[in-house]
Nucleic acid binder design. Structure first.
Lengths: 111, 111
DNA sequence: AAGATATATAGATGATTGTATATATATTGT
DNA sequence: ACAATATATATACAATCATCTATATATCTT
C-alpha cells in the first residue's frame, strides 16, 4: 500500500459521520444503493455523496453502477491492508531492534 | 474502548505530520524527549507540542516527566485496541448474519 | 419527448485545524 | 537570585473540511 492511499484511508476514517456511513454499508451484508444510505442520516444527499466519494477514493468502498442506481459495497480487505500497514509502521520493536537502536544513542543519555 | 477515544485516535492518526511524529516515537525503541522529536521536523516547537498533546490525549503516546524533560513512549497496545475495534465495527458478515440481513430485504432485489 | 428519479458537481459558508509567534511556567546550573 | 533551558499555553491566521443549496447529468417511465 502506497503512502498516498494510506493517508487517504486514515483521513476517510477520521470523520465520525463518514465512519458511520462506512459502518452502515459494511453492516448491510449485500450491496446498498446511495439512496438507502442517505435515508440513514440526517444530512443532505450531496453531503452523503461527498462522503461516499472520499470512501471510494480511499478504496474502502467499491461501487457498481446499474442504470440510474449505484450500488455500494464495503471492502474489509482494503481495511485489513490499512491495518496491517498501520501496525507495521507503529510496531513494538523486537529485542534485537532495540539493541540496534540503543547502540548509537549514547549521546542523548550522556547529555 | 469507548466511542470518544476511538474517534480521538482516528483523528490523531489522520494528520500526516502527526502520524510521522508517532512513527518517530515508536521507532525510537526507548523513551524520547520532546526536544528530540522537535529536531526531527521542520516545524515550530509549539506545533510539535500541540501534536504531542493530541497523541497523548488519544492514548497513543504516554509521557513520563523527569525534571524539566518529558519523556515520550508509544503505546502499540492502545493502537492494537483501536485496530481491534475498527475491525469489529467494519467486519465482513458471516453467512448467518448475511442471511438475517437479507431476510427483510426483498424490496431492493425485487425493485 | 417529457417528466420523474438517482446521483454527482459547483459554489458558498461556518467550523475545525495545522501552524506560527509570543509568552508563561517549571526546572537546572551558576 | 538569575540566566538558561525545556515544555506548555495563548492568540492569530490561513487552509481544510463538513455541510448546505442549487444545478447538472444520467436513467427510467409513460
Amino acid at each position: 500500500m502506497d503512502a498516498i492511499q494510506f493517508q487517504r484511508i486514515a483521513k476517510a476514517l477520521a470523520d465520525p459521520r463518514r465512519f458511520e456511513i462506512l459502518e452502515v454499508i459494511a453492516s448491510a451484508g449485500n450491496e446498498m444503493c446511495c439512496g438507502a444510505v442517505v435515508e440513514c442520516f440526517p444530512v443532505a444527499q450531496a453531503t452523503v455523496s461527498h462522503h461516499l466519494k472520499e470512501l471510494t477514493d480511499a478504496g474502502l468502498v467499491e461501487t457498481r453502477a446499474e442504470g440510474q442506481f449505484k450500488y455500494l459495497r464495503a471492502r474489509p480487505d482494503v481495511l485489513a491492508e490499512y491495518v496491517a500497514e498501520l501496525q507495521r509502521r507503529i510496531a513494538p520493536l523486537s529485542a534485537k531492534e532495540r539493541g540496534l537502536k540503543n547502540a548509537h544513542r549514547q549521546k542523548s543519555s550522556a547529555a
